[in-house]
Amino acid sequence: MTVTLNVNGRDHAIDGDPATPLLYVLRDDLALNGAKYGCGLGQCGACTVLVDDKPVFACVTPLATLAGRRVRTVEGLGNGKLQQAFATEQAAQCGYCIAGMIMRAQALLERNPSPSEAQIRAHMQPNLCRCGTHMRILRAVRRAAEAP
């Protein structure tokens, strides 16, 4: 089965099993390696990408759900203020969770450019960082929200 997949504004014809998780298509077929395989169970958030501007776990999002929808990955963001804020705050230790963290934060800031601390925490809740840099990550999201 062929699905037309729109990723970062470009259409790709993907020929494959419609049950394939989006994460494998991004990494194996499109060489977009920003989204990471963490748990494969939708529990850690390392694979977070945006589908129609909402954060989803790419590891449990079947290709069959994506016809006619817009997928965005960290590669599509360019060098925005979120990446700059994460670098400034040194929010990455091993860095494995960061692409997912940035994508989830991106969804929040697009919808709500000046979120409260409680809103940031509630929104970022599904994503885990095993190094424990959550406090720096939260600071980075706050910095990006306050950036001009």
């Binding site: 419609p18 998780p21 449990v60 079947p62 069959a64």
Partner: peptide, 14 residues
Amino acid sequence: PAGATLFAGACAAC
């Protein structure tokens, strides 16, 4: 069959 495909891609890992 459509539901089976979605289950395989979204639910089966757990």
